[in-house]
C-alpha cells in the first residue's frame, strides 16, 4: 500500500516538474526559432537598411525591405492610444474606486471586464464598419482607414487593462492619506490628484506599460482599420504596423520576403522584451 502511494507521489512529482518546464521550453523554443529565422534576412539586407530604410516593397522586381515605416507606425499608434487612453482609463478608475456608489461601481467594473474579453477581431469589425466611415465623414477625407482610426480602436482596447490595474493601485492607497488630506481642508478633487494619484504612481505606471504591451502587439483589429499601406506614418494616412506587416504577407510569402517577415517578428519580439523589462523594473522599484 505504502509502495503504491510512494509511486504515485513520485510519478506526480515528475509530471509537475515536466509541466513546470513546459513554459520555459516554449519560451526557449520561440526565442531560438525567432533568432535563427530572423537573423539571416537582417544580415542579407543590412541592419541599417532594414531598420532605417523608409521603403517596403517586398514583391517588387527590385525589392526593398525597409521597416522604418512599420516601426514608426507602431510607436506612434501606441503612443497615441496611451495619450488618449491613459487619462480616460485613470479617471474611470478613480470614479470606480473613489466616487461611484457600490452598485454603479459594480456595473462599471463588470462592463470593463466584458470589454477586456471581447476578441480583437470584433474590435476590428466594429472599427471597420462604424469608426472608419465616421472618421471619413467627420474629417471630410476620401478614406477613413488610417492611423487615427487605428489609434481610436487601440485606445478602446487598452482601456480595460489601464482601468483595472489603476483601480487596484488606487484602492491600495491607505485610507489615512485620504482622510488626512480631507481633514486639512483639501477638496475631494485636490485629494484625488495631489494625494491618491501620486501615492498610486507605480501601479498606474504599470497599467501604462501593460497598455503599451497590449497595443504594440495587437494585429487583427488594427489590420482591419489602418488601411495597411506601407507609408511613412501620418495621422490621416493609410499605414501598416509591425504586427500587420507580418500577418498580411506571411501566408503568401516566399524566399527573402519570408525571412524578412521573420526579422520583423524578431524586432517586435525585442520591443515586447524591452516593455517587459521596464515593467519588471517598475514592480521591483515599487517593492523596495
Amino acid at each position: 500500500m505504502k509502495k503504491a502511494a510512494n509511486f504515485i507521489e513520485k510519478a506526480m512529482n515528475i509530471i509537475f516538474t515536466l509541466c513546470g518546464f513546459l513554459a520555459v521550453a516554449f519560451v526557449i523554443l520561440i526565442t531560438g526559432f525567432l533568432l535563427t529565422s530572423g537573423m539571416p534576412a537582417i544580415g542579407k539586407i543590412g541592419i541599417t537598411d532594414f531598420l532605417f530604410g523608409t521603403e517596403w516593397a517586398s514583391t517588387a522586381a527590385t525589392p526593398s525591405y525597409g521597416i522604418l515605416p512599420f516601426i514608426l507606425t507602431s510607436v506612434y499608434g501606441t503612443f497615441g492610444a496611451i495619450i488618449i487612453g491613459v487619462p480616460l482609463g485613470l479617471m474611470c478608475a478613480i470614479f470606480v474606486a473613489k466616487m461611484a456608489k457600490t452598485s454603479i461601481a459594480k456595473t462599471v467594473r463588470t462592463s470593463v471586464d466584458l470589454l477586456s474579453g471581447i476578441p480583437s477581431v470584433v474590435y476590428g469589425l466594429v472599427g471597420m464598419i462604424i469608426i472608419v466611415p465616421l472618421v471619413r465623414e467627420a474629417f471630410n477625407l476620401p478614406d477613413g482607414a488610417n492611423l487615427f482610426s487605428a489609434i481610436i480602436v487601440l485606445t478602446v482596447m487598452i482601456l480595460p487593462s489601464v482601468i483595472s490595474v489603476s483601480e487596484t493601485a488606487i484602492r491600495a492607497v491607505p485610507k489615512e492619506y485620504e482622510e488626512a488630506s480631507l481633514a486639512l481642508g483639501a477638496t475631494k478633487t485636490e485629494t484625488v490628484f495631489k494625494v491618491i494619484v501620486p501615492a498610486a504612481k507605480s501601479g498606474i505606471l504599470t497599467s501604462v506599460v501593460l497598455g503599451i504591451g497590449r497595443s504594440i502587439g495587437e494585429a487583427m483589429a488594427v489590420m482591419m482599420v489602418s488601411g495597411n499601406v506601407a507609408n511613412m506614418p501620418g495621422l490621416f494616412k493609410s499605414v501598416r504596423f509591425l504586427t500587420t506587416a507580418v500577418a498580411s504577407e506571411m501566408s503568401y510569402s516566399s524566399g527573402l520576403q519570408r525571412e524578412a517577415l521573420f526579422s520583423i517578428a524578431l524586432v517586435l519580439f525585442v520591443f515586447i522584451l524591452i516593455i517587459n523589462l521596464v515593467l519588471n523594473l517598475i514592480v521591483k522599484k515599487d517593492k523596495e
Binding site: 516593397a57 514583391t59 517588387a60 522586381a61 471597420m128 464598419i129 472608419v132 466611415p133 471619413r136 476620401p142 478614406d143 477613413g144 482607414a145 489590420m223 482591419m224 488601411g227 495597411n228 499601406v229 493609410s238 501598416r240 500577418a247 498580411s248
Partner: peptide, 25 residues
Amino acid sequence: EDLCKYSQELTSTGDVVQTVASNPN
C-alpha cells in the same frame, strides 16, 4: 505592377467588397 498607389491594402476578398460597399468613392 508595383506602381499602384493604394489607399488600403486588405487581406481578404470579403474585406475588399465590404470596404467598397461602404465608401462611395
